[in-house]
């Protein structure tokens, strides 16, 4: 197990820059999630760390040793692929032992390690099967098992849950969290799904357009998004973003955009209303209700209410914003803060 440090990583494909200078430090044993929209460079960054892509500039250190020029096979990392990349012609046992054979480990030791991992992942009954004879979830576990037996310095996960159905995804997410608690390795996890990011990560790295937008714990990002991108990306439904002049008493400051999460908007008396909105759609989920509304100038506003609601489409509703939870962003899209709270900077 080991820490990882990236300094000024750049990656160009011809004239296109995919990574535009990434600095990041990951502590030993940490579970870090790279999240961002597709094309943001998160997978490329993971592959750069793995050694499957060369860098255009910058360097990579694992445990204080520079590995930038080292081939993937010499970095001692393990990776779980989105497609699982199980060797179709090998049994589960052979899939898990292949890496150990490559490392020249004794047969008995290999068997012991494979058995241990198989027990942990409930794969013992399937060791002699080929991948084609396994369900999606089982394949996924084999892919993880293949990484575990290695006892690698760092685990890399490339959207490992995206091929599973919703129910299995939730279950496997929990198992992954439990696994990290149990074996405690350094894990780097790429996903476009912010729920996975929020639930799994010690720290989240939000990437956009080849740059890091913000680094922080899940709640950091949720509570104090550093910019409009993070504000809009983290949280579901998305944070409401309104021009400042729509809200009484806010126009005076430097902020150009106000952000308010749906759960921090509440119906109120007309007198104390920040805004009056018209309901366009009501989503009743039983335990909670989402109101999709439009305010002045057709600005959309989403409201989350606990419990069930008797409101209906076309109703007009005065709403108030919880001042403690109001996010203010300047014209450049950066959060306005008394003392600017930047991403917890590495080292």
């Amino acid at each position: 197990m080991a820490g990882l440090e990236l300094r000024g990583i750049r990656k160009d494909y011809g004239a296109t820059a995919v990574l535009k200078g990434i600095d990041l430090s990951i502590a030993d044993g940490e579970f870090v999630v790279f999240v961002g929209p597709s094309g943001c460079g998160k997978s490329t960054l993971l592959r750069v760390i793995a050694g499957l892509e060369t860098v255009t500039a910058g360097d990579i250190h694992i445990d204080g040793t520079e590995v930038t020029r080292l081939a993937a096979s010499d970095r001692g990392l393990a990776m779980v692929f989105q497609s699982y990349a199980l060797y179709p012609h090998m049994t589960v046992h052979q899939n898990m032992s292949f890496a150990l054979e490559n490392m020249g480990i004794a047969k008995a030791e290999i068997s012991a390690r494979v058995d241990r991992a198989a027990r942990m992942l409930r794969l013992t009954d399937y060791l002699q099967r080929k991948p084609a004879a396994l369900s999606g979830g089982q394949r996924q576990r084999v892919a993880i098992g293949r990484a575990i037996v290695r006892d690698p310095k760092i685990f890399l996960f490339d959207e490992p849950l995206s091929n599973l159905d919703a129910e299995l995804r939730v279950a496997t997410r929990k198992e992954l969290a439990a696994l990290h608690a149990e074996i405690g390795g350094t894990m780097i996890y790429v996903t476009h799904d912010q729920v996975e990011a929020m639930t799994l990560a010690d720290r989240i790295v939000v990437l956009n357009g080849g740059r890091i937008e913000q680094i922080g714990t899940p709640l950091d990002l949720y509570n104090r998004p550093a910019n409009l991108f993070v504000a809009g990306f983290i949280g579901s439904p998305r944070m409401n973003l309104l021009p400042t002049e729509l809200v009484k008493g806010e126009a005076a400051g430097t902020a150009a955009t106000l952000g308010i999460r749906p759960e921090h908007v509440e119906p109120c008396q007309e007198a104390e209303a920040d805004l009056t909105v018209r309901i366009e759609l009501v989503e009743q989920l039983g335990g909670e209700t989402f109101l999709y509304t439009t305010g002045p100038n057709d600005v959309p506003l989403t409201i989350r209410c606990d419990g069930q609601s008797r409101l209906a489409r076309g109703d007009v509703l005065p709403v108030r914003f919880s001042r403690d939870h109001l996010h203010r962003f300047d014209a450049a899209g950066l959060a306005c803060r008394p003392e600017p709270l930047l991403a917890r900077s590495p080292s």
Partner: peptide, 9 residues
């Protein structure tokens, strides 16, 4: 790539 990660030559 999986094989490369698995330290195969």
């Amino acid at each position: 790539e999986a094989a490369r990660m698995d330290k195969a030559s």
